[in-house]
Design a protein around this nucleic acid. Sequence first.
DNA 1: CTCATATGAGACATCAATGTCTCATATGGA
DNA 2: TCCATATGAGACATTGATGTCTCATATGAG
Lengths: 199, 199
Amino acid sequence: MPTREQLLDAALRTLNDDPTASLAQIAEAAGVGRATLHRHVASRDDLVRELGDRSLDRWEETQRASGLAEAVADGGDEAVRACLREMFPRLVADAEDYGFALTDSFLVSEPRLAARTADLEAGEVALWRAAQAAGVVRGDVPARWCMHAAYGLLVASRDALRAGDVARRDLADLVLTTLLTGIAGEPTSTTTTPKGGAR
Amino acid sequence: MPTREQLLDAALRTLNDDPTASLAQIAEAAGVGRATLHRHVASRDDLVRELGDRSLDRWEETQRASGLAEAVADGGDEAVRACLREMFPRLVADAEDYGFALTDSFLVSEPRLAARTADLEAGEVALWRAAQAAGVVRGDVPARWCMHAAYGLLVASRDALRAGDVARRDLADLVLTTLLTGIAGEPTSTTTTPKGGAR
DNA sequence: CTCATATGAGACATCAATGTCTCATATGGA
DNA sequence: TCCATATGAGACATTGATGTCTCATATGAG
């Protein structure tokens, strides 16, 4: 007798694994009859909509818990860096848990979800602008490119994790380091807390 | 009276725009009857398979034209850098033209396409290993992470282009610079040809 | 124990996409 | 002109997913 939350969790896991899974597969994975599934969600679109909302809730919570708004308001380089350090481990986890939402096309065709997405993207862009103003990020790249690049590396992190190419505990650092300093030279330690105090 | 190639091109454009487009939509976009479409491809799976093969052909050609194998065999840092400079503009164009292949799940479920993909990925990984050996890329990141990161930034480039956030002519440089030196510090000019001779 | 409620199994109709088929027409060459 | 071939339009059956419904059963509260 799974609760509604457990049922949605099972659906999420199934859709992460195979975004084209049928409702029958989802119900089976949840250990529940197909009719029972329909007693909780009216239709497949309803289900996907709800999971999409949960994924955006999660993203919103990540922005909140990372102090994104405060970092933008503060504007200091250390505040921005601290926000990034807080945010990326969460984003990487979000990308793993809600992987299907990273690419599902239904989510962008749903106006309300698209609008929420745009709002949250605007928050990210604001952070990148602040990062540029604080000198944490170069000023000669479009702030929206920073957002797209971060998103792309989250897709990469999900794929790397699935392929078993990177250990989970290394992933968040790897993503943020790659984004900020690339894979070429030495990392200029923006992601790990400075040991000596090289602030 | 579109030729087979033109028809597949139209199908590709349509599927890039909407990966869930029906055969009726594809036929309409090609300016052709649904029956005529079926005279060229036996089934939807056939069509997607063929487009998947074309996308892999394109990737293969990109590796060849960029001299990937030669760069790996050479192993020198300048050879590797030259290969990267050749390859990324092509990859960015490939990602734009075959965008749907970047994420379509059917392509990985098709064993032959999955095998070809694995082969081509192995080529990329070989290049990243060579880049590490030549000191072009840090040695402390998994070579396969370099591959995933490159892929993720190609997804980002496609999205940025669609959203109109980056000019097409800037995109390849932006992707390669971001991958190699990140968005934080000054770019250490691995992507643009050195002016003075600062090899 | 008794009853109300939720569930599982499955029947059922619906729907959209798909693949096949036919036929009238157009096109292009002999 | 005459003929062969390719096409467009559309009818048709099939298929798989979907959404609704019923009924027997289990479970839990009273």
